[in-house]
């Protein structure tokens, strides 16, 4: 049974991915800052802050020890901040970067160490269309995800010799808590910028992840795949 580690599994896209990949035969280990309100066979949960370097290292080592390795990492955990940048406190920017960038970095590094030992691994990070679209009001969020995209492309090169691929999927808005506070008008404006003018769905994301993590995708790395025809 292959082992998949997904961050940010308590709700939203992460929660969906837990069900989706357990149904497809994976053992899934997830994490979030607080306890989940569900229990599923073949799912284990760890409570931690993804930006906590030591906690991440401890979790990853425990998972690798118990299951003999980690095959797939999905760095889904993310937080958003939507505000005019003139009204954005630095503390908010720090929090957004801590989860989105430092959390992704921590898990990429620790899980890669485990994957490198077996010379196999698939890592998928989470970007956003907000970065290439340069969306107003999302400076901190878009900048953090632009950092994730670049991190993905650089470490893809550094990990290629270990047969570890690192790619990213860039979702459009999907109906989750992340965009709960955004007005319908703003969402419609955003959808208007996409080539395919509809709201994203969970299946759009798992479809891309499926492609990126399959063993046959060993020649696909350093790619950021944006949904909805955004480039």
């Amino acid at each position: 049974m292959n082992t998949m580690l997904i961050t940010g599994t308590r709700k939203g896209i992460g929660r969906y991915l837990v069900d989706y990949y357990i149904e497809r035969g994976y053992r899934v280990v997830g994490c979030s800052r607080s306890a989940p309100d569900f229990e599923i066979e073949n799912y284990q949960h760890h409570e931690l802050d993804v930006a906590d370097e030591k906690a991440v290292a401890k979790m990853v080592r425990a998972v690798a020890k118990e299951h003999g390795g980690i095959d797939v990492l999905l760095n889904n955990a993310g937080i958003a901040s939507m505000n005019h940048f003139l009204l954005t406190p630095l503390r908010t920017v720090e929090q957004v970067f801590a989860t989105n960038v430092f959390g992704t970095f921590n898990f990429c590094r620790e899980v890669s160490k485990v994957m490198a030992k077996r010379k196999y691994g698939r890592i998928v990070n989470f970007a956003t269309v907000a970065a290439p679209l340069k969306l107003e009001g999302e400076a901190a969020y878009a900048a953090s995800k632009a950092a994730v995209a670049n991190l993905t492309q650089v470490i893809a090169k550094e990990l290629a010799d270990f047969n570890i691929t690192v790619n990213a999927v860039g979702p459009t808005p999907v109906a989750t808590d992340l965009i709960r506070g955004v007005s319908d008008d703003k969402i419609n404006d955003l959808i208007g910028l996409q080539s395919v003018k509809r709201m994203g769905e969970y299946r759009d994301i798992s479809n891309v992840v499926d492609f990126l993590i399959q063993p046959e995708s060993d020649f696909v790395t350093g790619q950021v795949i944006y949904l909805g025809g955004v480039s």
């Binding site: 030591k54 290292a57 401890k58 080592r61 160490k113 490198a116 030992k117 010799d161 270990f162």
Partner: peptide, 22 residues
């Protein structure tokens, strides 16, 4: 350098196992 990465990773794992410290 690639072998060094593997060595460092193995030693980190060994230290974690032996001393229960990351």
């Amino acid at each position: 350098s690639l072998s060094l990465v593997r060595l460092v990773v193995d030693v980190e794992a060994g230290v974690s196992e032996a001393f229960d410290t990351e």
